[in-house]
């Protein structure tokens, strides 16, 4: 195996893992605030994809489509919190999970009926479908962009969480929600913000996903978000860095299997990826960065 091929695979893994990381981070932010694993996160992603699709459909430039995807993701996420999750905010984790499960099913049907059960093509401009050649390395433009934008987003979020008042307030709320309210932080505002951030991240992930596949369908978000769930758990529930690490880990495992799996096993790639990651939980049931449950009180 050549260095080039290896580098190529690393780029692939960074691109795919980055997308998982964005989704997982959004899930983890919401979870850390209110203990909800949002099953309907995939529908936020699909919805964002439709935002992109619609803007292209009416003939606007792709750049605006990206904005539309992000804005749609944000809007759906915030609306979802307000309509579906606020009434059950203090319910048990199982009740929250089932609520989001129902929301997910309902939204899939809405997409199927209001748009189409079939995939809708999204025309990606030629500038993006091309690739650059660096020596013997082929780098797809979208792939390169997705890596750059993901890293920029993660860096931006790091700045947001470290430098801005809202970002710091959100970290505080994630670590101790009750005491955060004692600091004057509004519960509704900070949870809405958490959903908002998760929606923006899902919007970005949707853009990469659609741009690489050229179409959007009602179930588009399901599989990537499922993997993001698993990334969150493997990273350690509620740990934001863990979620990002879990996302990239999943990307590397998946690309690794795709590259090195013998041909007759390629069909089992998805299954093997998931199985390998779940097996990590045998060794560390609380996840890679999970904290032990023991405490003073």
């Amino acid at each position: 195996m050549t260095i080039e091929l290896l580098l190529q695979q690393v780029l692939n893994a960074l691109s795919l893992g980055g997308t998982y990381a964005l989704l997982a981070l959004g899930l983890a932010i919401v979870f850390s605030m209110m203990g909800l694993i949002n099953f309907a996160h995939g529908e936020i992603m699909s919805g964002a994809g439709y935002g992109l699709w619609f803007v292209i459909l009416v003939g606007l430039p792709f750049g605006l489509g990206i904005v539309a995807a992000v804005v749609t993701g944000l809007a759906i996420a915030v609306a979802m919190e307000k309509i579906a999750f606020r009434p059950v905010r203090s319910a048990s984790p199982a009740a929250l999970l089932l609520t989001s499960f129902a929301v997910s099913g309902i939204m899939q049907v809405l997409f199927q009926n209001l748009i189409s059960p079939k995939g809708r093509p999204v025309a990606v401009p030629d500038v993006l479908t091309g690739s650059w050649t660096l020596g013997t390395l082929h780098v797809g433009t979208i792939q390169a962009l997705s890596i750059i934008v993901t890293l920029a987003l993660l860096a931006g979020l790091t700045v947001f969480f470290r430098r801005t008042r809202m970002g710091i307030a959100m970290r505080a709320a994630a670590s101790d929600f009750d005491v955060a309210r004692l600091m004057g932080i509004r519960a509704n505002a900070v949870i809405a913000a958490a959903f908002g951030v998760s929606g923006v991240l899902a919007g970005a992930a949707a853009t990469f996903w659609v741009a690489q596949r050229g179409s959007v369908d009602p179930l588009m978000g399901f599989l990537p978000v499922l993997k993001a769930f698993i990334a969150v758990i493997v990273g350690g529930l509620g740990r934001l860095e863990g979620a990002v690490a879990g996302g990239f880990l999943l990307g590397f495992i998946e690309i690794g299997l795709r590259a090195f799996l013998p041909d007759d096993l390629v069909a089992y790639r998805e299954a093997l990826t998931l199985a390998l990651v779940i097996l990590i939980l045998v060794l560390r049931p609380r996840g890679l960065m999970g904290r032990a449950r023991e405490s003073v009180r």
Binding site: R165, R171, A180
Partner: peptide, 27 residues
């Protein structure tokens, strides 16, 4: 009106500075 809760409950993962920033969010 505010409370200093039992057991202090500072935001352990945040720096001292950040803890103080959080306190000003409502102002």
């Amino acid at each position: 009106m505010t409370m200093v809760p039992e057991g202090r409950r500072v935001f352990a993962d945040l720096t001292v500075d950040e803890n103080l920033v959080v306190a000003t969010v409502g102002r």
